[in-house]
């Protein structure tokens, strides 16, 4: 068995604020294999971005990794020095954000920024870096690439800026690309272009992608595996088919019920009641309990453990444990008859 490219083990990340400790990421573990696309979904504030920033080690104050390991090819990057991290970022793992302007510097030309990124992470010389910059812009489908190299970020449209950011993130052929809501700010037709581009580049370059989004449509389109996050924890994980057609956590079920469908006739949407939990004051048991229609007594006192639903699917919900017991009891009764 090959070792996974990335192993996140019991990662905890917190922000110490006046009102207490915000446990943004609260003990999550997952693996990412080479060349796979992993999707992370969850509501706003569930810890998706903080997970990404933890892996990149780009948390802003007062954010801090308080526990766990992030193993890249078996090496724990949490222990890396600043210098090692600079090397690691861009070359091994790159990130693209929802707003391209957060990674593009408004005062430098596109060409300048692309070239600098390439020079920093590869041993190409100036001329080779220039050639590579042009090649990358062509690769991401920016029209008139020679002209774009001389332009500034604000002179480009939103879709084009997102392409440039992808070019920059991929210029050094990282093993992992983390995309944090890369298309949320874009129109659907441009979004389709960008997702298509990411898929084709992923196949061409064989990199792995962590796709963070709240859009279940984007997830269904792109991902081999899906992680569903709720209140800083992973509540369910599995293949796209398992998550969409056989959801086994009450939050995931609620999420799937609450979205409008294109094919459906007019049926009323079923919203998830209540509001998100306060991360500084996490309940003792299941974090979703206050919003869950099927909440049981045990849910209020005990954290549900993660149970294997099948080989491709795990969920952390007491309902699954109950089901196992109910089925066993039913079998016993059938036997005794």
């Amino acid at each position: 068995m090959n070792e996974p490219l990335l192993q996140v083990k019991n990662l905890c990340t917190s922000f110490n604020v006046d009102s207490g400790e915000v446990r943004a990421v609260n003990g999550i573990s997952f693996n990412l294999d080479k060349g796979k696309v992993l999707g992370i979904v969850g509501e706003s504030g569930s810890g998706k971005s903080v997970t990404a920033y933890s892996i990149m080690r780009i948390l802003v104050e007062p954010g801090r990794i308080t526990g766990g390991q992030i193993l890249f090819n078996g090496e724990d990057i949490v222990q890396y020095s600043k210098k090692q991290m600079r090397e690691f970022r861009g070359k091994r793992v790159s990130i693209i954000f929802q707003d391209p302007m957060t990674s593009l510097n408004p005062v430098y030309t596109i060409g300048n920024q692309l070239r600098e990124a390439i020079l920093l992470h590869t041993d190409r010389n100036h001329e080779q870096a220039n050639a590579r910059a042009l090649e990358m812009l062509q690769l991401v489908g920016v029209n008139e690439p020679e002209k774009r190299l001389k332009q500034y970020p604000h002179e480009l449209s939103g879709g084009m800026r997102q392409r440039v950011m992808i070019a920059m993130a991929l210029a050094c052929e990282p093993d992992i690309l983390i995309a944090d809501e890369p298309t949320t700010a874009l129109d659907v037709t441009i979004q389709a272009q960008i997702l298509e581009l990411m898929q084709s580049l992923q196949k061409k370059m064989g990199m792995a992608i962590i796709m963070i989004t709240h859009d279940l449509g984007v997830i269904a389109d792109m991902c081999d595996e899906i992680i569903v996050m709720y209140a800083g924890r992973i509540c369910e994980r599995g293949t796209a088919d398992e998550i969409f057609y056989n959801p086994r956590h009450e939050y995931t079920k609620g999420l799937l019920r609450s979205i409008p469908r294109l094919d459906a006739g007019h049926t009323r949407l079923i919203p998830i009641a209540g509001s998100p939990v306060d991360l500084t004051n996490m309940p003792k048991g299941c974090a979703f309990a206050s919003r869950c229609d099927n909440c049981m007594k045990i849910c209020l006192s005990e954290l549900p453990e993660e149970l294997d639903i099948n080989d491709f699917h795990k969920a952390s919900c007491w309902m699954n444990v109950k089901q196992v017991y109910d089925e066993a009891a039913a079998e016993k009764e059938a036997d005794s008859k």
């Binding site: 029209n143 449209s157 879709g159 084009m160 659907v188 037709t189 441009i190 979004q191 389709a192 272009q193 997702l195 298509e196 859009d215 279940l216 449509g217 984007v218 997830i219 269904a220 389109d221 796209a240 088919d241 969409f244 057609y245 799937l256 979205i259 469908r261 294109l262």
Partner: peptide, 26 residues
């Protein structure tokens, strides 16, 4: 037609089989 074909559909089976009508440019 392009706009509708570009909607991300929250359903993996549909996503796998569906034809996009890509729009070039901005």
């Amino acid at each position: 037609q392009s706009l509708i074909s570009a909607i991300p559909i929250p359903d993996p089976n549909t996503a796998r089989t569906r034809q996009r009508i890509p729009l070039e440019g901005d």
